[in-house]
Design a protein around this nucleic acid. Structure first.
Lengths: 326, 326
DNA sequence: ATGAAAGCGCTAACAC
DNA sequence: GTGTTAGCGCTTTCAT
């Protein structure tokens, strides 16, 4: 692979001059510029960004740590992150942390070793104290990581309220929440709180069922089947859309009709769900806006490591009404 | 951020020694090792992989160029790639090329500039001659890129045959194929050919409808609606599962029953579809195996740029039978 | 068992 | 308008 020196030799100038041409810096004669450009073309030259970054420049690399990209919600989020970051000249290193805290720690070390300019983190793992001392700009999605790390999230509390309202409005009397395991400090808990608080107004009964985020769809389906077979609930709020899909599936299998026998509200409202399951009433998170805010904040910190930021940035959610609460 | 020299000073040894400790190289006394390790811990030291790579080492970075990760198929594929590569000590730079050839070219340049060790590419863009001269190990998924680049794919031809068989077996008489726009040199065409060839045996009629891969679900839905309203077909093969979902949606809206009025076979068989749409008959691509082969080949080329590889690696597909062809 | 010194490819004063 | 030089943080001979 050609180096700056190769170009310099071929163009008959010094390395500095080539560097100047590349970075469009200082004053160059048209003649040299042309010569250098030609040489670059001829050797199919690409400046070694490793060397560049070594000299103190940014790497233009951002680490993205999320549970995993096979989930449509995070798939869309990563796509959005990649898209917006690309336009600003950054690339991303994708880190699927899954539910493996050790892997997440490894990734954190690697990202430090690679001198990424910053990190966007939104995994579900807890107790990773390493976040305290990465010494790199970090923005978190929807999780508390450390006191210094700003959290961007949608308005989970209001989302919970909206879900409750939709269920109540549709005439449900015996309500059920199906949610991931209860993580302390997680803004996601607010979905629950909002839901409960809203219900207090109407004095209705409800139950909470927790199913680990990392359980397989089969396991989740089983638990849902158990729940539904009792035929005791007529309104369900799932704190994510995929679980809601499972409820529809199991209800159908049990001969229960949605929404006649049981009403249903999901959460997330990805493009995928909106296109392929428009029947589902759900609370839509503004993924694009969330990402925009995260990137904005992150790049601010990249430019100035010590710039002051709020602890929390909360973006509005929206209820999308489908037939499952008709 | 601490450097090797900082550690050397703190431990009271030379930089060379620290380097030896890090790389577990040459002969070291236990005493020095301990001192150095302590210093590293104290300063939360991470070796600068940029500097390391500059010295001729590999970057342990692999570029992954795909249409986009918000599609469940590619989402699962990327997740699989990331997973398998992580275990071998590599990280990935994610490049969503979308349907933007210029973006793909940009990414190619960036990947060269970043000195990634290799590239896995499976975008849908055509006419990117740059692949000819990247000078980096590349493996392609399901697309022809250049004569030197091996293609790994599932057995598209047999997949087409299986789809046809399933439809015929279920008693369909007037068949329809819905597929992406016909790209020259794309192994995906084989799905069509396999389907057609199989049909010749049974002497049934069929039509082909092309819908661009990059069309929105709404657009696709519209075309499908037009098609279905004529009520002329009773068996449909979609060359991807998401389109099949759209067919189910439109059929329902038109009051047509699946499979009574129209039978349906999809293609891909992701975990997502298997879990959330088990009713869909589909041809499953062995994503995990495909990725394993791609990575195996890629790493061979990383170790030895000139190692001989086959042009094509074809992995077996499997028909998953659901109720849409019952 | 350890250190000194050169160099990977690039940028940025500092000359002229 | 262009060249010289000194590093960035690390690895790697070659000494000792």
């Amino acid at each position: 692979m050609a180096t700056l020196d190769d170009i310099a030799k071929l163009a008959g100038v010094s390395a500095t001059t080539v560097s100047r041409v590349i970075n469009n810096y200082g004053s160059l004669s048209e003649k040299t510029k042309t010569k250098v450009f030609e040489a670059m073309r001829e050797l199919n030259y690409q400046p070694n960004s490793l060397a560049r970054s070594l000299k103190g420049k940014k790497t233009q690399l951002i680490g993205v740590i999320l549970p995993g990209v096979s989930n449509p919600f995070f798939g869309q989020m990563v796509q959005e992150i990649e898209d917006q970051l690309f336009k600003k000249g950054f690339r991303i290193i994708l880190c699927n942390a899954g539910s493996d805290a050790e892997k997440e720690r490894d990734y954190l070390r690697m990202l430090m070793a690679n001198r990424v300019d910053g990190i966007i983190a939104g995994s579900h793992n807890l107790g990773i104290e390493e976040y305290q001392k990465v010494g790199l700009p970090i923005i978190s999605f929807d999780r508390y990581l450390s006191d210094e790390i700003p959290i961007v999230s949608s308005d989970n509390y209001h989302g919970g309220e909206l879900a409750a309202q939709a269920l109540v409005r549709s005439g449900s009397k015996k309500l059920q929440i199906i949610t991931g395991a209860n993580h302390p400090n997680s803004p996601t808990n607010a979905r629950l709180t909002g839901f409960k608080d809203e219900l207090k107004k109407s004095d209705l009964d409800f139950d909470v069922m927790e199913i680990s985020f990392s359980a397989t769809p089969n396991i989740k389906g089983l638990k849902i089947k158990e729940l539904l077979s009792k035929r005791e609930v007529d309104g369900i709020f799932c704190t994510d859309d995929l679980t809601a899909l499972l409820v529809i599936q199991q209800a159908k299998a049990l001969g229960m009709r949605v929404p006649e026998d049981v009403r249903l509200v999901g959460y997330d409202g990805t493009n995928f769900i909106q296109s392929y399951h428009p029947e589902l009433t759900t609370v839509m998170q503004p993924i694009s806006d969330i990402v925009m805010v995260m990137i904005d904040l992150l790049l601010k910190r990249v430019d100035d490591h010590d710039c002051e930021l709020e602890d929390n940035y909360v973006l509005p959610v929206k209820l999308i009404t489908g037939e499952t609460t008709a």
